[in-house]
């Protein structure tokens, strides 16, 4: 059967019977929401990871807490799996949507790169970092999340450190850390501008302020992440001969 509406659209390029699709609006909104949730998640994630700086015990307790220990005797790693899966879904959703913003051909990519070089404009340069880090995370983040989904039980002061040091995961984490902190920092700064959150009376001044705050946050989080990573490596190094041995709680 001939669907008149569709054929009209096919022939004239516009659909006179319906209004414009609301999808672009939804998608744009989703991109921001997913980005924001991910950014919030990372904000906490890195702090929790940083618990190792307070000692193995602190990290252990936190892990157990996430496994739901207060309610379930001994904790249930499956909770982590589920959590990881949810984050993974969000992650894929966000990446999928963001894909539409990537240069869709080499020509577009070249044009962007040349234009960026010509203009040398700060926020335009930042976008380059954002797509590059996004691209990197697409792979590294997936690996990491896959591990967390499949081996949720292998989290803990020794297990994590062994993975990082003895299993040679640290280079990946290093790259992932830098990527995610930059990406989230720039992403949130962009979110603020994109929706005009803190425009106030002096939007120009406030944009500069937001940018400064984002920079400081990125710096702090990088420091925190590096310190944690260093600590895991130190523990992993000291623990390499006991590879595989799990951490035992100090006292109950």
């Amino acid at each position: 059967m001939l669907n008149r509406e569709y054929v009209t659209e096919l022939l004239t390029g516009k659909d006179t019977t319906k209004h414009k699709s609301r999808m672009p609006a939804r998608i744009d909104f989703l991109q921001s929401v997913s980005g924001l949730l991910l950014a919030l998640f990372i904000l906490f994630h890195l702090v929790f990871e940083g618990s190792i700086l307070l000692g193995k015990e602190a990290m252990y307790r936190l892990t157990k807490m996430f496994e739901g220990e207060p309610f379930i005797e001994g904790g249930e790693p499956l909770i982590i799996s589920v959590l990881a899966f949810i984050i993974f879904a969000l992650f894929i959703l966000h990446a999928g949507i963001a894909l539409r913003k990537f240069p869709s051909s080499y020509r577009e990519y070249r044009r962007y790169i040349e234009h960026k070089a010509l203009l040398n404009h700060n926020d335009t340069n930042l976008w380059y970092i954002q797509i590059t880090t996004g691209f990197i995370m697409f792979f590294l983040g997936s690996i990491h999340l896959y591990m967390m989904m499949t081996q949720p039980e292998n989290i803990g002061p020794y297990a994590s450190s062994d993975r990082i040091y003895s299993d040679w995961m640290w280079p990946m984490y290093l790259v992932l850390l830098i990527s995610v902190v930059l990406h989230a920092g720039i992403g949130v700064y962009r979110l603020i501008i994109k929706w005009g959150w803190f425009d106030g009376k002096d939007p120009r001044g406030n944009r500069q302020r937001s940018r400064k705050i984002a920079k400081v946050l990125v710096g702090l989080y990088l420091l925190l992440g590096l310190a944690s990573l260093g600590t895991y490596m130190k523990i992993g190094y000291e623990h390499q001969n006991d590879y595989g041995k799990r951490y035992v709680e100090q006292k109950k």
Binding site: A25, D123, I193
Partner: peptide, 15 residues
Amino acid sequence: VGDENGVFGCMSLMG
């Protein structure tokens, strides 16, 4: 402007 050629195409590059 409700599409990718309009407001949803802007990536807030601020140039």
